[in-house]
């Protein structure tokens, strides 16, 4: 057990015992190798179930609104991107700050389990062990090591905010990881494509979508009480999984998240079909950075870029084309 995990278990037990909080939203081991799942703990003796490791990839912020109690507080384990989601939800006035006790964690990035699974093909992963800078994967009759840094989720590789912008207590060290200068090289590369090439790319990427909406449900910022694609009066588009409908769903969802996406990548992690939605969310991030010099969910006092008007904003679509 790593020290961070141990500290977390002890602190979790303490805050449940002294009734600082009534419940903790955290991570626990799942039944499959390398899967950590959300857990809701309300008894001090169960705090030992809490875990923290490189497979705690889910953003727990999505559970806050449903779990927030009428009286008292709940605690949440927050890595950097969970913290950014919490900050953005607070900016959007989704719950009162005093209801939440944030257990911040300095996150070293989460592992792209799917990439490892895909590279192993039909061989099943039966055990995954973290060994400092290596990930040891075991299955029937094989063992393979993967370098940790290379097999991080892409957004973790370019993440500048491993620590949540706001927290009540930080578990573990505050020591920052190396300085990261994200030049959006992936997005710049994607922007070089012609419109036809981009369209072909999206059709290819999205063709396995079953419209289960796991991406929407996992997203901490997708909290509409009724999503546009569930509306029936009017029904905006059909419910089947044809290319055009899949594209409409993902692109409209992207529009709704412009200036609100906190780059946690949970939409990507949870997709049962392994669809890579990161090119879309990265583009959103880059637009907001380029146009408004804004990064989402960092400064609790800063209103969302697309909900405010500044005279300096670029508004070239007001200008007439030559």
């Amino acid at each position: 057990m790593n020290k961070l995990e141990n500290d977390l278990k002890e602190l979790g037990k303490k805050i449940l015992l002294d009734k600082t909080v009534g419940k903790i939203i955290g991570y626990s081991y799942g039944t499959l190798a390398g899967k950590c799942v959300p857990v809701f703990i309300d008894k001090p003796e169960e705090a030992g179930k809490l875990t923290w490791n490189s497979f705690c990839d889910t953003n727990l912020a999505r559970y806050i609104k449903k779990e927030i109690p009428k009286e008292g507080k709940i605690a949440i384990i927050a890595k950097g991107c969970t913290g950014r989601a919490i900050t953005q939800l607070l900016i959007e006035k989704q719950f009162p700050r005093e209801k939440l006790y944030i257990l911040g964690i300095n996150c070293a990035g989460t592992i792209d389990r799917r990439r490892i699974a895909n590279e192993l093909g039909s061989t099943e992963i039966l055990e995954i062990i973290e060994k400092e800078d290596k990930i040891l994967v075991k299955g029937t009759g094989f063992e393979k090591e993967f370098p940790r840094a290379e097999y991080l989720n892409y957004l973790c590789k370019v993440c500048k905010y491993p620590i949540p912008p706001i927290y009540d207590v930080l578990v573990g060290t505050k020591e920052p990881k190396g300085h990261i200068h994200d030049k959006y090289e992936d997005t710049l590369e994607f922007e070089k494509k012609t419109p036809d090439e981009k369209w072909a790319y999206f059709n290819e990427t999205l063709k396995n979508c079953t419209r289960c909406y796991a991406c929407r449900e996992a997203c901490p910022l997708c909290y509409c009480l009724e999503c546009f694609c569930d509306q029936t009066q009017p029904s905006w588009f059909c419910k089947s999984a044809e290319h055009s409908e899949i594209a409409v769903f993902h692109l409209v969802r992207a529009m709704h998240l412009a200036g609100r996406c906190v780059a946690c990548g949970d939409c990507n992690v949870v997709c049962p079909m392994g669809i890579d939605l990161i090119p879309i969310t990265r583009k959103l991030e880059k637009i907001v950075k380029d146009r408004f010099d804004a990064e989402v969910g960092i400064d609790p006092s800063k209103p969302p870029s697309l909900s405010t008007f500044c005279i300096e904003d670029q508004e070239e679509f007001f200008e007439e084309e030559e």
Binding site: P38, Y63, C212, Y213, A214, V270, P272
Partner: peptide, 13 residues
């Protein structure tokens, strides 16, 4: 059901 996203992949698939 506490952690369930409600994506329904368990039943779709």
């Amino acid at each position: 059901s506490a952690a369930c996203l409600g994506c329904g992949s368990c039943s779709f698939l």
